[in-house]
Computed example of a mutant assay.
Amino acid sequence: MAEVERIPGDPWEDEMGFSRAVAAGDRVSVSGAIPFVRGVLQGEGDPYEQARTAFGNALAALGEFGLGPASVVRTRMYIAHARDVEAAGRAHKELFDTARPAGTLVVVSGFVDSRILVEVEVEAYRGAP
């Protein structure tokens, strides 16, 4: 079995038993990232700003492994309202238009904090191209 590296970053990690990011071999997976910075919600009511912040948090976790947007091979966006597809998609395109990872966008019934409109996950590859 491959050695697993873990990066902490969320106060719920210990409570729920997960890691912000995990690397196993050449793959790095980042857990659901939400639009909070130092405990403060960013972009309240603005799905574009929330998506940018959530992806920024996810990319910061990848940065701990020396990776950036070009290493991302899969993204998942979870949004609370179908009306926010364009806003979340625009934020995604700005960050990943060059990399063009496989992507999924799902409308969900809600999040742990009702002010959250967007949560994201990313997976990256850190091997040779």
Score class of each variant (00 low, 15 high):
Tyr48Gly: 08
Thr75Ser: 13
Asp26Lys: 11
Val72Phe: 08
Glu44Pro: 05
Ala24Pro: 00
Gly43Trp: 11
Ala80Val: 10
Arg38Asn: 15
Ala21Cys: 15
Ala24Met: 13
Glu49Asn: 01
Gly32Glu: 13
Ala33Val: 04
Gly32Tyr: 10
Arg76Thr: 15
Gln50Val: 08
Ala24Ile: 14
Ser29Thr: 14
Thr53Lys: 02
Ile34Lys: 00
Gln42Leu: 08
Val37Asp: 04
Tyr48Leu: 12
Leu41Arg: 09
Leu62Tyr: 10
Gln42Ser: 05
Arg76Gln: 14
Val37Ser: 11
Ala80His: 07
Val30Cys: 12
Ala58Leu: 12
Asp46Ala: 12
Glu44Gly: 03
Phe65Lys: 04
Arg76Cys: 11
Pro47Cys: 14
Val28Gly: 06
Val40Gln: 13
Gly56Leu: 10
Ala54Arg: 03
Glu44Tyr: 06
Ala70Asp: 07
Ala54Pro: 01
Thr53Asn: 03
Phe65Arg: 02
Gly68His: 06
Val40Phe: 14
Arg52Lys: 14
Thr53Arg: 03
Met77Ser: 13
Val37Cys: 07
Arg74Cys: 07
Gln50Lys: 05
Glu64Asn: 12
Ala23Met: 14
Val40Glu: 13
Ala51Ile: 10
Val72Asp: 01
Val22Ser: 12
Val30His: 06
Gly63Cys: 12
Glu44Cys: 08
Arg20His: 06
Leu67Asp: 06
Asp46Met: 08
Leu67Met: 12
Gly39His: 05
Ala80Ser: 15
Gly43Lys: 07
Asp26His: 01
Ala51Asn: 02
Gly39Thr: 11
Ala61Val: 13
Ala58Met: 13
